[in-house]
């Protein structure tokens, strides 16, 4: 499986990873090599095999549906890159 630079650009966009053209070219080679290893899966006979999403086939445990107090906002925001008046700041989204 060989990925082109455009394939990698598309995946990088999906993953929100910024990379310049030189890096994109390197990634194309490296990711293609990884997909070559992964290609061994194609030959495996998995007819009738159920997908295994979890090692213990657990079902999700639910807690009681009770509202818990929101605490420690100041502590959590003390490690944020930018906040003001209790909200997180990002560049303007709507002009």
């Amino acid at each position: 499986m060989s990925l082109t630079a455009d394939d990698v650009r598309n995946v990088a966009r999906l993953a929100r990873l910024g990379a310049d053209d030189a890096r994109i070219a390197e990634y194309a080679g490296e990711l293609s090599n990884i997909l070559d290893v992964v290609a061994a899966l194609e030959k495996a006979d998995t007819d009738g095999v159920l997908p295994m999403s979890h090692p213990l086939d657990l079902t999700a445990r639910l807690r009681a549906d009770e509202a818990l107090p929101v605490t420690e906002r100041d502590l959590f925001q003390s490690i944020a890159p930018a906040t003001a008046d209790g909200v997180y700041l990002v560049p303007k989204v709507i002009e």
């Binding site: 899966l41 495996a44 998995t46 095999v49 159920l50 997908p51 295994m52 090692p55």
Partner: peptide, 13 residues
């Protein structure tokens, strides 16, 4: 890829 790998994972387990 992903669904196939989940199946081969079960074979390994």
């Amino acid at each position: 890829y992903y669904l196939k790998a989940q199946k081969t994972r079960r074979l390994i387990a």
